[in-house]
């Protein structure tokens, strides 16, 4: 299934955008629908988590302030967001005098990136893991703690944490597969 086509029903998204253009408080729904994709797109292209957060925040702030200029032309909203993200990263790199310019044209269809879509789906699936498995995944991959540190924090054996990590990754893999099929 095409990743962008899978985002949402085009008509629904158009209605959401128009609603947000009239009432900015409705922007929250657009944010929820697209946060993981934007973050996954940015995180793969920057050096660290702090930079990914800065760029993602900049993208959504810009999107909200320029929402009135957005015109629906059948292109998914996320494509517009990813274009803002690509420009933001290019500006940032130019400012920092890095010789790593991103070819903006090649990012116009970044919304179809299978990897971005897969990561975004994975991020969403983590929220639906059982609580103990989700906690272990967050401690291990977001906070980058060792299994020993996690076991001490949660008051469980290292073996139990190891098993929870394994089960969580198994669950995520099988759900990603089933969603792609």
């Amino acid at each position: 299934m095409n990743a962008v086509a899978n985002v949402s029903n085009g008509t629904d998204e158009r209605l959401l955008i128009e609603a947000a253009q009239h009432d900015p408080s409705r922007f929250a729904e657009l944010y929820e629908n697209n946060f993981n994709r934007v973050y996954a797109f940015v995180a793969r292209r920057v050096q660290n988590r702090e930079e990914a957060e800065d760029v993602t925040a900049e993208v959504f702030h810009q999107a909200l302030s320029k929402l009135g200029q957005f015109q629906w032309r059948g292109v998914p909203f996320v494509a517009w967001l990813l274009r803002i993200a690509a420009n933001a990263m290019a500006d940032r790199w130019q400012r920092e005098s890095r010789n790593q310019e991103v070819p903006v044209d090649s990012l116009e269809d970044a919304g179809t990136d299978q990897q971005v879509e897969r990561s975004a789906m994975l991020f969403q699936l983590v929220d639906h893991l059982p609580a103990d498995q989700r906690l272990v995944i967050l401690r291990r991959f977001v906070e980058q703690k060792s299994l020993r540190e996690i076991s001490q924090e949660l008051g469980r054996t290292e073996g139990a944490i190891k098993q929870l990590q394994f089960r969580a990754l198994q669950t995520l893999r099988s759900k990603v597969r089933s969603n792609h099929e």
Partner: peptide, 30 residues
């Protein structure tokens, strides 16, 4: 396969960042 999943999870956003940004956007929208 599991390591592929783990690699993608290295970019997992912090839950508090998502909430914080949402709050900031709500302020901006008001």
């Amino acid at each position: 396969d599991l390591l592929d999943v783990a690699f993608d999870l290295r970019h997992l956003p912090r839950p508090d960042f998502k909430m914080r940004l949402k709050t900031e956007l709500e302020w901006q929208s008001w």
